[in-house]
């Protein structure tokens, strides 16, 4: 498997560690979230047949966390973004 790193170009999946659903970026604020909201964040994942946004970590590379959009049907990698940029675009900051 190849992941086309936005800064480094195509890299072998052997350099990466996968975490799973990119919804893990959307962590609720623990001071204001209900237990149910925090529970859903921690435990619930979609399992789509089709495009899936996943978190991959370039552990044996530049230590970037990436959001990889991958089709679970064809295994095609459709899009790769720096997770930090995705997080910022989703309004995460400090």
């Amino acid at each position: 498997m190849i992941i086309d790193h936005p800064l480094l170009g195509p890299r072998d999946a052997a350099e990466f560690v996968v975490l799973g659903d990119a919804s893990l970026i959307d962590r609720p604020d623990g001071m204001t979230a209900t237990v149910e909201e925090m529970h859903d964040y921690a435990y619930l994942r979609d399992n789509p047949a089709g495009d899936h946004r996943e978190l991959w970590y370039h552990e044996q590379g530049d230590r970037s966390w990436l959001v990889v959009t991958r089709s679970t049907l064809t295994h095609e990698v459709i899009k790769v973004e720096l997770a930090r940029n995705v997080a910022r675009a989703q309004g995460r900051s400090r």
Binding site: L7, L8, G9, D62, S64, L82
Partner: peptide, 20 residues
């Protein structure tokens, strides 16, 4: 750049992460 090192005399700089 992320995939290139720069060299000045005997001092070389290489990128290891976007911010390092």
């Amino acid at each position: 750049d992320p995939t290139r090192s720069t060299l000045s005399g005997e001092v070389r700089a290489i990128r290891t992460s976007p911010d390092q």
